[in-house]
Amino acid sequence: MMAENPNSNLPQDPEYWAGLASRIREDAAGPLVAYAAAQEGWYDVLSERAAWLVAASAAAMVILWLALPSNDSVAFRWMERSLAPDGVAGSLVGGPTPPSVEVLMAQFRPASLDEARR
């Protein structure tokens, strides 16, 4: 607000300006609330990018599928072993007596070592 000016044609009373400003602000309350309500939420941002996100997800699935190890790879064999029914684990959990250390160790002994012994 400008300083008081005796030459001005406008009112000099600060209360006049405060009252006028207050009326103008009151008048603007409705539109301002509407503007605030119309602001975007996080879900609006997501929905705007939905097509892009679906495409990116599909591409990621294809890449993962292509990156899966082949049947004869070492990784696949390890995975196969880890998924296969484990007799030792079954006896450890459900057997009347726990398996011996020798039996447990035999599970993790490389086949090449057995062959070398022979």
């Binding site: 400008m2 300006w17 400003a21 602000r25 603007a28 309350a29 301002l32 309500a37």
Partner: peptide, 15 residues
Amino acid sequence: GDADAYDALVRRYLR
């Protein structure tokens, strides 16, 4: 929808 920002504009531009 920032009412404070609008108030500031009113203060600047009223006179």
